[in-house]
Write a protein that binds this DNA or RNA. Structure first.
Lengths: 352, 352
DNA sequence: GCGGTGTCGGAGAGCGCTCTCCAACCTGTG
DNA sequence: CACAGGTTGGAGAGCGCTCTCCGACACCGC
């Protein structure tokens, strides 16, 4: 046993278990046990080993450890995009949208405490998807959180077929036995309808997102259903793509086709911002002439003028729940497929 | 050589190089060579091997490969925070801020094309920092992009001392020989001063961020210098923390202390949004009574009412450049420390 | 025909760690 | 005192891959 003093350098390379073992005068296995806090090791040896760890400046090599344990302490956040190219501006928009940041924030709030890191990956092509699944089966990451954008994304199915622990944020478009966390989008839209009708609007329109993405179609369905219940069998509708500009364009269309419009439900806040611009340009007062309800309660809603009445979407909580669900699934392979649906609420501000 | 047909399953586990080698009737080394496209391998064997790869459904195990090559194809994005706790709401705000998303978007635009993934890590405590550096020295990631928040962050120094390829977005607060990409913050602030004075403002104030973070102090210095050049030796100032609410509060303070204020430079758009709110509440017209210039040209600037005149901050480009710089450094350890400074421009909209 | 010069493929030694044996030892009991 | 039963620590076999040697063989010129 060496004296308890001084640093023990090991040349160029980083100290390994072997080095620590030599310094401590024990075997590699024992050091491994101590470092990982496994089984009862003689308290004396325990001290000696930690001492040697200290003196050599040993840091376990995660990679080597992962290779044998098949656990990486990493969770992949996969953004599955249909076929965008590297220079497609779409991804830029996507990341700049608060949606992405809120998801990351929610995930990190849980993962950080568990010491798990998040690996971001974007897959667009079929080849990238296949490669991703291959890597995941090899244990590149312990599990994956999927943000699926395209309408008929094959990724969720590929993931479940491969047996990779996965959870989606937002339900899959096609029925796939995968865990997911979602918002009751239809209820949210319904809340918007109730509010607009409740404040006396006579002709209420809607600016929706693309009809083939689940979150969007659920909002459309929920809104229509609720409006019908209030006696409005038909609802004027224009379609955008969730960007501010598209909302502006859609609002102009709607206004041109239905000049007497006095209320509008916009499927997300960013488009609502655009709608506000178009309404102002058309000389309409909000909410005096036209009442506007958004969706998401993103930071943009408060910043808008007038501040947006909107549907609150607890995205951070949802993402955090997704992380928890995934961690549970990772630890228990027999967990049955489950989903958690969050209820939205209406946040009343100035625009309606 | 086996017949070219059918799948060759290998039981439960995933196929390894060994399996492919057996099926192809060659050695492990040869398969490795073919898969990695190394050296001249007999074209015939080449075909046979790819065939075997196809039939076994072989996918290389990244982990195992990384263990020996010491290359991971991963770059870490480290958000270095001073001492926030897991339940600190600050991180939530940080991620929801478009700043984060824009950086990620810019990085990904470059990394994605290179097939590199981004691993997100937040370090707050001293222990986490030490662990991160240890992991990085072991080649957990090939390099690291640092987003350093606290004023006197020890991380940049630790990174350079450890010899880890690193690049910062925003210059380090303390002088450290580390690569970085930054904006000429002083020039930007100077642009704002010129514009406000140019439009005839007589009493111009400033809402700045904390004085001890570089980006903020540079903006303060640049603004003051330029104002002084225009004959305004002294500038009323209030301090915020880059959030909308803090901007609102600061604006109220400024207005209370200097009721005749007719122009204000706000150090970021989010605070400018808050300032707009406070001005409206105080019954001041923008830009009629008070002209407002923001900073960042974030999406909030366009959404604001009136739309914000602001300083454009090409953050995506800067992040992309950071990624390129880092990749160069990773491939060439002898690269000398370098920095790239971007020039901001003034974007004129309605608020000034 | 022979040494010299290439080219190609295989053997095998790691990369740094975990974890299953198994030997050694230390109790307590009949 | 012998032996079951329970610890502890070491040896060593991998995890799946890369890459350095080195042998085998083909081709060249003299």
């Amino acid at each position: 046993m060496t004296a308890t003093s001084g640093r023990v350098p090991v040349g160029e390379r980083l100290p390994t278990l072997e080095d620590v073992a030599r310094v401590a005068g024990v075997s590699r296995a024992t050091v491994s046990r101590v470092v990982n806090g496994i089984r009862n090791v003689d308290p004396q040896l325990h001290t000696v080993v930690w001492d040697a760890v200290e003196r050599t400046g040993y840091v376990p090599n995660r990679l080597a450890r992962s290779l044998v344990t098949r656990r990486t302490g990493t969770i992949a956040l996969v953004v599955s995009d249909s076929e965008s190219h590297d220079d497609d501006p779409f991804m830029g928009r996507f990341f700049a949208d608060p949606y992405f940041g809120r998801v990351v924030g929610g995930l990190m709030s849980v993962l950080r405490a568990a010491g798990i890191q998040l690996a971001l990956q974007i897959v667009g092509t079929e080849q990238q998807r296949a490669r991703l699944v291959g890597d995941l089966r090899h244990g590149q990451a312990d599990g994956v959180v999927v943000l699926s954008l395209p309408a008929h994304d094959p990724l969720p199915r590929m993931l479940t077929d491969a047996g990779v622990p996965a959870v989606m944020i937002g339900r899959p478009a096609d029925p796939v036995p995968i865990n997911y966390v979602d918002l009751a989008n239809d209820t949210g839209a319904s809340l918007a309808a109730d509010h607009l009708v409740g404040r006396g609007c006579q002709l209420v329109g809607m600016i929706s997102g693309p009809a083939d993405v689940p979150a969007s179609s659920d909002r459309i369905a929920g809104f229509r259903r609720s409006m019908a219940r209030h006696g409005h069998a038909w609802v004027p509708q224009a379609i955008g793509n969730f960007t501010q500009v598209s909302g502006e364009v859609a609002m102009r269309e709607l206004l041109a086709a239905h000049p007497t419009l006095d209320g509008v439900f916009v499927a997300n806040d960013l488009m609502a911002l655009g709608a506000l611009l178009a309404l102002r340009a058309a000389g309409r007062e909000v909410p005096g002439d036209v009442a506007v309800v958004g969706f998401d309660d993103s930071s943009a809603a408060v910043a808008a003028n007038p501040a947006l009445t909107t549907i609150r979407h607890p995205l951070e909580d949802m993402a955090a729940e997704a992380a928890r669900l995934l961690m549970t699934r990772i630890d228990d392979a027999t967990m049955r497929v489950s989903s958690v649906i969050y209820e939205p609420t209406l946040v009343r501000r100035e625009s309606a």
